[in-house]
Computed example of a mutant assay.
Amino acid sequence: MDREEDVDQNRLSEVLSDILKCEGFFMEHVHVFRSECLLSEKISKDLFGITEIKCGSAMAEGSQILGSDMDIMQVSPGIIAVNGDSNFFDEKMHILKEVMDHCLPGYTRLLVHRLNPKSNFLPDIQTIIKKDGNSLYLSSEEYLKTFKNVRTKSWTFPYGKANFYSHGPCTTASMYNLKGISNNIEYDMTCGIKCHSWPVAATEWIHRPRLMGWPSSDIAEKIASFPVHVMPVGDPNSDISSMQWRFAFSYAERELIWYFSDIQFSVTFY
């Protein structure tokens, strides 16, 4: 009886695999999408000086689930967030210090530490700084308002039309009437500020015991070399939500997915 059940189970796995391939899911296809993602990021950086992080199932993970959108974080130039005890200095950057008191894990405030006139950060940083006591902080609320206003006014797409709406830290462009494409496409766009290093609380993840051996220590060390960012969204239950920023591990999360096995990928996305 057990052998019959094993045969049925194996047959079921084969049928599922065939169905996924018919739906366009096979690892070679996924690898193409991942390569396209990295190439497009490099083109944006090398040709236009824009750092973009592409994530989400359609663009970065290559799963192409029906209804998937494309998530893009644009990293602001000329500004950086550092740990409180860091001595980092760059004459072309505004430098902010992470202050995590009165914040839940995963959130921080950004204390203005040093403003440099040579920074190419836009908009005028003075318009999004708020005072709290004797200290100045970068307002996530004002920063996000400016980003959304700029993105909706500057967005151009010659092959169709777009509607915009906001949710959380994202501005979504819903494109329709696309030439040669029957389905609508959605882009979730947000902005972020690069951190000089990982937050101290997150470094535990790198060396924690892993009973199942995934990810391997080599992968964990590689992921630890990727930058972390902060996004302009605060804890909704906090009285100082408009001054808080949320840590984003977009590169790390994407890399973990790219190291999924075939089975992990199939189970997760299908």
Rank of each mutant, 00 (worst) to 15 (best):
E28I: 04
E23P: 05
E28H: 09
M27V: 01
S40P: 04
S13V: 08
L38P: 05
L39C: 13
L20E: 11
M27H: 05
K45T: 02
M27W: 09
L20I: 01
E23T: 12
V30G: 04
E14Y: 08
K45S: 13
F26S: 12
I50G: 00
F26G: 05
D46N: 09
F48Y: 10
L16C: 12
H29G: 14
S17Q: 13
S35P: 03
L16R: 14
S13C: 07
G24T: 03
H29P: 03
V30D: 05
S35D: 08
E14N: 04
L39S: 13
L16W: 05
F25S: 04
L20K: 05
F26H: 14
V30Y: 00
K42I: 05
C37T: 15
C37R: 15
R34W: 09
L20H: 08
D18R: 15
S17N: 11
D18G: 04
K42D: 06
C22I: 02
E23K: 14
L38V: 09
D46V: 13
M27D: 08
I19N: 01
F48Q: 02
F26A: 04
S35A: 15
K42S: 14
C22G: 08
V32H: 07
K42F: 03
K42W: 04
V30C: 10
S40M: 04
E14Q: 09
R34H: 12
L20T: 05
D18N: 13
C22K: 12
E41W: 01
E41R: 07
C22V: 10
E28P: 03
L38H: 12
M27I: 06
L47P: 06
V15M: 14
F26Y: 13
F25C: 01
F48A: 06
M27E: 10
E23W: 07
S44T: 00
M27G: 00
E14G: 03
D46Q: 13
C37S: 14
R34C: 05
H31T: 10
H31I: 01
L39W: 06
D18V: 11
K21I: 14
G49I: 10
F33W: 03
H29R: 15
E28W: 00
S13P: 00
H31V: 07
I50R: 05
L20G: 01
L39F: 12
E41N: 03
S13L: 15
R34F: 00
D18Y: 11
S13R: 13
F26C: 10
L47V: 11
M27P: 00
V15H: 14
V32M: 02
E36K: 06
F33G: 11
K42Y: 04
V30S: 01
L39M: 14
E28T: 07
S17T: 12
L47D: 14
R34P: 10
V32F: 06
S17R: 07
S40E: 06
G24Y: 04
V32W: 05
L16V: 08
I43K: 00
F48N: 01
I43G: 03
E28R: 02
D46Y: 03
V30H: 07
G49P: 12
E28M: 09
F48V: 02
D18Q: 11
F25P: 02
G24K: 07
S40W: 04
V15R: 13
E41F: 01
I43Y: 00
H31A: 09
I50Q: 06
